[in-house]
């Protein structure tokens, strides 16, 4: 193919402007990259990259600032919603979002996320649930499924001793302060499109309605699940979605209309 031909072609797919041109450090088959892209597309759609402040959490998603062309604060483990609260109060006109994993948000940071939602802080929270602690090497997470084997539940999660996987979206949807709460997945093209819409909606909730928007994204961790990327992707539909149903659990703006 000659250069002239390339120029003649219409570009139908490109890197979102809010994403930096860098190589990914995520493992093969990890879906953080897809989710990063969806978040960047939402920022592009509202043209907010130049104003946005992101709050990185602890875990694989800590390198947020390498991927997004935005200002970023690195929060202690679980504390991103509190850090975001401080940032948003100082810059009420600027978009603020957190990007947190399941250990960060649903275990050590449970208190921060619940009270942030309950205050109705006008921020957007992207919650990536892959049922394990990725960065520390695949330990049991608050979202680890019953009987799921991890490095700290080698015989499978025993719900009588370890408790049950927490459905954070349903929990937060029950709070008065939550304006928008949805659970999505990125395992099929259709789900990716739905996830993109939900993430946009969560930003819109902040930008238009000054409300707290929350999106839980079911995601893979092939490395720590001990699976190849294809099998890991299949597990999302086979095991995760039955326990963590997809859908919009709260949409205050729609209910008000």
């Amino acid at each position: 193919m000659s250069i002239e031909n390339v120029e003649a072609m219409k570009q139908v797919f490109s890197r979102p402007a809010s994403l930096n041109a860098v190589q990914t450090h995520f493992c093969p088959g990890c879906q953080h990259g897809v989710i990063h892209r969806l978040v960047a597309q939402a920022m592009d759609a509202f043209d907010i990259q130049a104003q946005t402040i992101g709050v990185a959490s602890v875990g694989c998603s800590v390198f947020l600032y390498g991927y997004f062309g935005i200002d970023v604060i690195e929060a202690p483990h679980g504390r991103a919603p509190a850090v975001a609260t401080g940032a948003k109060r100082v810059h009420p006109q600027r978009p603020v979002f957190t990007y947190q994993g399941d250990g960060d948000l649903a275990a050590i940071g449970t208190s921060e996320i619940i009270h942030c939602a309950n205050r109705g802080e006008p921020i957007t929270v992207i919650f990536v649930n892959n049922t394990t602690y990725g960065m520390t090497g695949g330990q049991m997470a608050p979202t680890t499924l019953p009987s799921q084997k991890t490095s700290t539940s080698p015989y499978g999660r025993n719900t009588s001793k370890d408790g049950y996987p927490i459905r954070m979206t349903e929990l937060l949807a029950g709070l008065e302060g939550t304006a928008y709460a949805a659970r999505v997945a990125v395992d099929t093209p259709q789900h990716v499109l739905q996830a993109g819409k939900a993430i946009k909606k969560a930003f819109q909730t902040q930008l238009r309605d000054n409300g707290f928007g929350f999106v839980e994204v079911l995601s893979t961790c092939p490395t720590n699940w001990g699976m190849n990327p294809v099998d890991a992707n299949a597990r999302v539909a086979e095991e995760m979605i039955p326990y963590f149903p997809l859908g919009v659990f709260k949409d205050a703006a729609a209910q008000g209309e």
Binding site: I53, I73, P76, A82, G86, R89, S111
Partner: peptide, 16 residues
Amino acid sequence: ESEIASINMLLGASAC
């Protein structure tokens, strides 16, 4: 909601 949240809110406000 906690001492922990309040110091982290301070971190966020200070970073801004």
